[in-house]
Simulated assay, not measured.
Amino acid sequence: MADKAQGHTDWSPERYGRFRDLRLRPALDLLARVPVLPEQGRVIDLGCGSGAVAEELSRRFTKRKIVGVDNSVEMLKKAAATGAYHRCDLVDIQSWEPTNKPPALIFSNAALQWLPDHAALLPRLAGMLRPGGVLAVQMPRQNGAPSHRFLREFAAEMFPDRFDFTGWVPPVADLPDYARILQPLGEADLWQTDYLQRLRLQGDGHPIRHFTEATIMRPFLEKLTAAEQEAFVKRYERALEVAYPPEADGSVLFPFRRVFLVVKVS
């Protein structure tokens, strides 16, 4: 999901798609826990990106219209090309609202972590559903891991004029916090999974840098000149080599935590 609301440029479907299978598995795990939906209503793929989950949604909900929503032009082109969506809407997901009747399912895979104030956001989204509708959300919760922590630490040290994380709060909260937010809305199912991802070499550079450069690195690099980017990436790669050393075959093991929220509204 592109985050132009935060001033970021458009996403690269090619870079994001390098690790398609690793990014798709959590979406399928989320989809597997979506309960029975009301008889009527559309399925909204909120922050659909390039449409990685489109075919699976279409296969699961064969008789429903599926609408992709994203604010990346390039990602939506890829999504529309899947042929699985009834429509693809170019909309900032932070301000999105259904244009027709209330949907039966709002499905959001790895998108809402870019948006603030989940205590207000999740009830607002749930309130858009028809009675018995389902809100299903998956978000990475990786900000305490070296792969993500290094970015904040190095940016603040190297470029304090542009990066200040004083009072910084992780964008994804603890599960008990989400339980308290969702409990008044309906029947909630929450869980957390640590995926042990094996990343293999893909050209020059540390595999985890290739993984993060399509997502969490973007807002950092966009504030740097070309020379600053080079220095920043070099330092990041050196730190990654220590935190995530290569295995005998050259791959690296990359533990990655994700949070899942499913609520069937009352």
Rank of each mutant, 00 (worst) to 15 (best):
L57M: 06
T99W: 07
L30M: 06
E14I: 09
E39V: 15
I66H: 00
A32S: 15
S72H: 09
H86F: 14
E14Y: 07
P102S: 10
E14V: 11
F107I: 02
A110M: 05
L37I: 12
L105W: 00
R15S: 05
V34T: 01
T99C: 08
L22P: 02
F61Q: 07
A111D: 01
P38D: 10
N71S: 15
A120W: 11
F19Y: 14
P98K: 08
Q40M: 08
L24S: 09
F19A: 10
R25Q: 15
L105E: 01
P35V: 09
E14L: 10
L121I: 10
K63Y: 06
S50R: 01
R59E: 12
T62R: 11
E14T: 13
I106N: 04
R18F: 09
P98R: 07
L105K: 02
L30G: 00
A52G: 11
E14W: 04
E97R: 08
G41A: 07
R59Q: 14
A52L: 12
S58H: 09
T62L: 08
A111R: 03
V69Q: 05
L112G: 02
P35L: 11
E97Q: 11
P26I: 03
A81V: 09
F19W: 13
V36L: 15
H86D: 13
Y85K: 06
L76E: 00
R42F: 02
L57Y: 01
P98W: 04
R18D: 09
D89V: 02
F107S: 00
V73R: 09
K63N: 14
S58Y: 03
E39L: 14
Y16Q: 03
W96D: 04
A110S: 10
E74D: 15
A111T: 06
D70F: 01
E39G: 10
C48A: 10
Y85R: 05
A32D: 15
V73D: 08
A110Q: 02
I44S: 03
H86Q: 13
P35R: 08
L57E: 01
C88M: 06
A54V: 12
A79D: 06
